[in-house]
Each structure stands twice: as structure tokens, then as C-alpha cells.
Amino acid sequence: MAGDTLTTESYIKHHLTNMTYGKLPEGYVRESYDGTTETLTQDTWTLAHNDVEMKDMGFMAVHVDSMFWSITLGLIFAFIFRKVAVGMHSGVPKGLQNFIEMIIDFIDTNVKDTFHYKNPLVAPLALTIFIWIFFMNLMDLIPVDWIPELMMWATGDPHFFFKVVPTTDPNITLGMAFTVFFLMIYFSIKEKGLMGFVKELTLHPFHAGKWYVDIFLIPVNFILESVSLIAKPISLGLRLFGNLYAGEMIFILIAAMFGAGLFLGVLAGFLQLGWAIFHILVIALQAFVFMVLTIVYMAMAHDVDEEH
């Protein structure tokens, strides 16, 4: 527990709040921790003190913790793989190279099973997604209080927000999902042409072949296809977010139990262990699912004569 004065509710809330750096508008009334208020004389970029401020920052804000961990973990991924790629040789592989090759082979098999077209971007895309998301999910296994407490201690600010698991931030998961969506549309148009893409949206699933019937079918088709198209990135991003958020939530609830007496504390210990073991599965599985769906979407984007 983060201090005795905290209630369980505020403890959980604190753990689920991102460290947000954003713009507060001119004339905004800020409330400090000690209750005094302060009116901003100009637009200010600053760290939010509470979730009201975060809401008021609107779109012009960045989750510093999410971005920090996401980039750090991405750099770790890039560093490890680059190191192996530089020392790569076709002789007898050893140690880390062996392991990395195993991963590459695994990704390659998955890509080749689903994606039968020529596109050199898809395999690296799948690899990046798998490893990066895996790393980000893995942060969930670090006991929930360690890093936030460390940051509070380091900054001396007891209200310092610091979320450790980037994939429990929908911005991160949706950011990746929409990038995949963008690539999907880009390759769709590149492979089928703009008209082909538009036709795909308007002439499926209902197609009569006679123009005077089609005229009425096209709007229906367009609505159906648009919904299914938009649903792809949303479901992709929210699936990952939902799974990890739920997992994180349970870890936080278990952590809250540690402060509630000996019996509950011991029980929480067992629950923590069990959930962590189960969560290993979720971590790898969600990274894998995100990767496989990305490959499938890429394949759909390249699929010229799609049948419904």
C-alpha cells in the first residue's frame, strides 16, 4: 500500500492514472494539493496534478509514462535484435543468436502460413509487433508498486503518477492498431487501385449485376463494409488493451489486499502468484493474437479477388 492515509479506492485510482503532460488553457483554475488555487495567466504545458486536469487537457496531452516505457522497450527490442543482426553469420549459431533465430523462424512461419503475397514489410511488421507488445505486456509482471513507489521516492512527490504497463493505455494499443489500419488501407489501394478499394467497399456483400438494382444496394453495402472495416482496428486495439487492463486491475486489487491483515495478505500472496503464472499466458497470447490479426489484415489488403 502506498501510505496509510490512502484509501483502497484512491490507491487503485492512482495506479490507473497516467503521468500526463499537456496544455492547460489560459484562465484555468488549478488546485494544488494543499487546497490553494492558482489561475493560469497563459496557456501552459505542464504535468497534470489530478484526473480532472487530465480531462481538461483534452487531446493536447501526452502520457509521458506510456511513451517512456513504450520507447524504452522498443529500444531494448531494437538493440537486442540489431546486436544479433550485426554479429549474424551463417556458421553454427550460438546462444542469443540461436534464440533470436528461433523467434525469426517462428514469425516467418506464421507470416508464410497466412500471407501469400510479396511484401517485404509484413514480416518485420509482425516481428516488431510480437516482440514489442510482448515486452510491453511483460511489464505487467513487475509488482505493481515497485516502480511507482520508486518514482514517488525519487521525485519526492507523493502524487506522482507513473503507470508501468504501456499496453494498459488505450492510446498505445489503439495507436498501433490504427497504424496497422493505415498500412492496411495503404496496401489495399496500392494493390487494387483506388477504384478497386472503393468497389470492395460498395459492391460487397450484395451484388445484383444490374445497375438499377445495384444503385440501391451500394449504400447498404457501404454501411456494412465501412462498419466491418472500422471495427478491425478498434477491436484489434481494444482487445489488447482490455486484456492487459483487466490483468493489471486484478494485480492492483491483489496488491490492495496485502495491507488488509495477515490472513488476506497471505491469501493475496497466493493469488498474486497464481494470477502472475496465468498472466504469462495472457502476455504471450495477446502479443501473438495482435501479430496474427495484423498478418491476416495485411493478407486481406492484398487479396484481390476476395470472395464473400
Binding site: N18, T20, G22, M54, K55, M57, G58, F59, M60, A61, V62, H63, S66, M67, S70, I71, G74, F77, A78, F81, R82, A85, I104, P120, L121, A123, P124, L125, L127, T128, W132, D169, P170, N171, I172, L174, G175, M176, F178, T179, F182
Partner: peptide, 26 residues
């Protein structure tokens, strides 16, 4: 759980890492 610039930041970071992976790793 606000949607904000992090979304775009993550997209750019993602593309950068994919590009890096394609160019220097894969």
C-alpha cells in the same frame, strides 16, 4: 483513459521501429 497525443506519438514510434526492424534487423 483519455485519448490524446499519445496515440499519434505511439503511431510514429511504431512506424519508426517497424522501419528499423525492416532495414537493419530482418
Amino acid at each position: 483513459m483519455n485519448i490524446n497525443l499519445t496515440l499519434i506519438g505511439q503511431s510514429i514510434t511504431f512506424l519508426a521501429f517497424v522501419w528499423f526492424c525492416k532495414a537493419f534487423v530482418w
